[in-house]
Write a protein that binds this DNA or RNA. Structure first.
Lengths: 208, 208
DNA sequence: GTCTATATAATGATAGAC
DNA sequence: GTCTATCATTATATAGAC
């Protein structure tokens, strides 16, 4: 990302809003605090964006564009993994937290994107099911949505993860450690199918 | 949970705060809205709890107590799964969202609890590693923390999950469907170890 | 214990000068 | 384009009557 001094005031405001919405959420980020971080007056923020809600819409549109662009750039690349690993992790990292926060702050634009990511994950799981011999306990749809929410839990709780792990998971080192652990998690089971069947029978006694 | 009419005003305020903090977060929940939901005046809320921050502390303590109690009650029960499945799911369900939200709203009490749950999950993963023949890509610690964050992503994004799945995942039916999908996810891999190794080599070329 | 009324501070929105 | 000054609203906090 370019030197803040090189950006127009409008762009600096957008960047500051992006950072604060991601960091503390829409409610807690105030027009004044955003303007202060951007080095401008609250009046100028209003001049450029009109209202706090309109500012959020502008940042949403910007982030969605950037995510889509990073996605397109990498779409022809390796097909090794899912959404999270097939696209350029580094390009998306700055937007992960913003995106995840937006899901909790009630941004309509971002809610739509969640559905799209869940659909992509569902397709990916459907493909993985091809190599399975046993019958899945639920359809692709349910597991796709759940996996999407689970993966998004990581940027959402990055603060606590970083504290527990003793490394900023948004840094290069931390992100690599997370990526490595995700590969291990994706490629290994935690419980045996027998144990899962036992638990299933306990939860759902009717269907043997 | 008992009829709201049977509760003291203090308890009704606590319940209303619990619900609103979980639903809309600490910032967006106002003293007025909480008092209104509890059917009392804002003044009475202050009389009982002193400040909004003190109210949060009180609700935190209450929730932590309830979670611990449910945990203890089930600790002697089946050892089939992890934290999420070994304790009484039904007993914890009302507190899941509150707990997850608190992690984003900066509640210190809840941050400590996250560490404890991560530690429990780490132990659980360490046990699962006993049956593994290959070398894990990361230590128990990293995977335990990640799994904890991932599982908490589900109550955090319950609104979006419910929309995508077409069922309220906090209802009995929805929760059962989620539990079933989790069992499947826990007991099946998404990518082969070969694919994971390929991706690892791409990310970490130095270590063969 | 419970309420009404009010003080104080913070926030989003606005107007107008440069 | 950018700022300062100000308004209107809303939030928390407080005081005191019943």
């Amino acid at each position: 990302m370019p030197d803040p001094d090189d950006l127009t005031a409008r762009a600096r405001i957008r960047q500051a809003a992006l950072a604060q919405f991601a960091d503390v959420g829409f409610q807690k980020a105030t027009i004044r605090s955003i303007a202060a971080e951007a080095g401008v007056s609250p009046g100028l923020l209003r001049h450029h964006f009109g209202s706090k809600e309109a500012l959020r819409d502008a940042v949403d549109a910007y982030v969605m564009d950037e995510i889509r662009r990073a996605n397109d750039d990498a779409s022809s690349a390796s097909k090794t993994g899912n959404f999270a690993s097939s696209v350029d992790r580094d390009a998306l990292r700055p937007f992960q937290r913003y995106f995840a926060r937006g899901l909790l702050d009630g941004s309509p634009t971002i809610a739509i994107m969640f559905d799209q990511i869940a659909a992509m994950t569902t397709q990916w799981i459907a493909a993985a099911d091809e190599t399975r011999t046993d019958q899945p306990l639920t359809d692709h749809h349910t597991r796709g949505a759940l996996y999407t929410a689970m993966v998004l839990g990581i940027p959402l709780l990055h603060e606590h993860l970083s504290r527990v792990l003793g490394v900023d998971i948004l840094s290069d080192d931390g992100d690599r450690r997370v990526a490595m652990a995700m590969l291990d998690i994706y490629s290994h089971v935690l419980i045996s199918t027998e144990l899962a069947e036992q638990a299933r029978a306990a939860l759902y006694p009717e269907t043997p």
